Each structure stands twice: as structure tokens, then as C-alpha cells.
Measured scan of single mutants.
Amino acid sequence: KVILLEDVKGLGKKGDVVEVKDGYARNFLIPQGLAVEATKGNLKEL
């Protein structure tokens, strides 16, 4: 699961917690600054 930092077409809006494949999160969303891993600490910051 990841928390979206920006609106991502076809996935969700900023602040949404979405389930995506590990590779998509690690190789695209997180490096592009579009999402962060949905850890307990990150979820509390919402």
C-alpha cells in the first residue's frame, strides 16, 4: 500500500491510500515523488 502525494490518473487523488504492485510503487511512484509507503508513521501524518 502507498499514500499518494499527488493526484495520479487512474489510481486516485492526493492523500488516498491505495494498493499497488510492489514493483510499480518502488520503480515508478516513489522515485517520481508521487507516493510514499503506507507505514504506520506515514498514516499518522495524514
Score class of each variant (00 low, 15 high):
residue 45 E to C: 10
residue 29 L to K: 01
residue 23 G to E: 14
residue 23 G to V: 13
residue 18 V to D: 00
residue 19 E to P: 06
residue 32 Q to A: 13
residue 11 L to K: 02
residue 22 D to Y: 15
residue 9 K to R: 13
residue 2 V to Q: 01
residue 2 V to M: 10
residue 30 I to R: 02
residue 34 L to Y: 10
residue 12 G to C: 01
residue 9 K to W: 14
residue 27 N to G: 12
residue 12 G to W: 01
residue 8 V to P: 00
residue 29 L to Q: 01
residue 39 T to E: 08
residue 38 A to P: 06
residue 9 K to E: 11
residue 18 V to I: 11
residue 41 G to Y: 03
residue 29 L to A: 01
residue 44 K to G: 15
residue 26 R to Q: 08
residue 17 V to I: 08
residue 31 P to C: 13
residue 23 G to T: 14
residue 16 D to R: 05
residue 42 N to C: 07
residue 24 Y to R: 04
residue 28 F to S: 03
residue 35 A to H: 01
residue 31 P to K: 15
residue 27 N to K: 12
residue 32 Q to G: 09
residue 11 L to P: 00
residue 10 G to M: 09
residue 1 K to E: 07
residue 44 K to A: 14
residue 16 D to P: 00
residue 24 Y to N: 03
residue 30 I to A: 02
residue 5 L to M: 10
residue 19 E to I: 12
residue 39 T to P: 09
residue 42 N to G: 06
residue 29 L to I: 02
residue 23 G to Y: 14
residue 46 L to N: 14
residue 35 A to D: 01
residue 12 G to S: 01
residue 21 K to L: 13
residue 11 L to V: 10
residue 12 G to D: 00
residue 46 L to E: 15
residue 6 E to N: 12
residue 15 G to L: 05
residue 40 K to D: 15
residue 27 N to V: 09
residue 40 K to S: 12
residue 33 G to L: 09
residue 32 Q to E: 09
residue 14 K to A: 08
residue 11 L to F: 10
residue 26 R to C: 04
residue 27 N to Q: 12
residue 18 V to F: 04
residue 6 E to Y: 15
residue 12 G to T: 00
residue 3 I to Q: 07
residue 12 G to K: 00
residue 43 L to C: 14
residue 17 V to Y: 07
residue 42 N to E: 08
residue 30 I to N: 02
residue 19 E to Y: 14
residue 7 D to C: 11
residue 21 K to H: 14
residue 15 G to Y: 11
residue 39 T to Q: 07
residue 37 E to Y: 15
residue 15 G to M: 05
residue 6 E to K: 14
residue 5 L to Q: 06
residue 24 Y to W: 10
residue 11 L to C: 05
residue 13 K to M: 10
residue 39 T to V: 06
residue 29 L to W: 02
residue 19 E to L: 13
residue 44 K to N: 15
residue 10 G to R: 06
residue 8 V to S: 02
residue 24 Y to L: 06
residue 38 A to T: 07
residue 31 P to I: 14
residue 44 K to P: 15
residue 20 V to Y: 02
residue 34 L to V: 08
residue 28 F to V: 05
residue 26 R to F: 10
residue 8 V to F: 09
residue 24 Y to E: 05
residue 4 L to M: 04
residue 34 L to F: 10
residue 30 I to Y: 11
residue 1 K to P: 07
residue 43 L to N: 09
residue 28 F to P: 01
residue 28 F to Q: 04
residue 38 A to L: 06
residue 42 N to L: 07
residue 21 K to I: 12
residue 29 L to P: 01
residue 1 K to N: 08
residue 40 K to M: 14
residue 34 L to D: 02
residue 24 Y to F: 10
residue 24 Y to C: 05
residue 39 T to D: 11
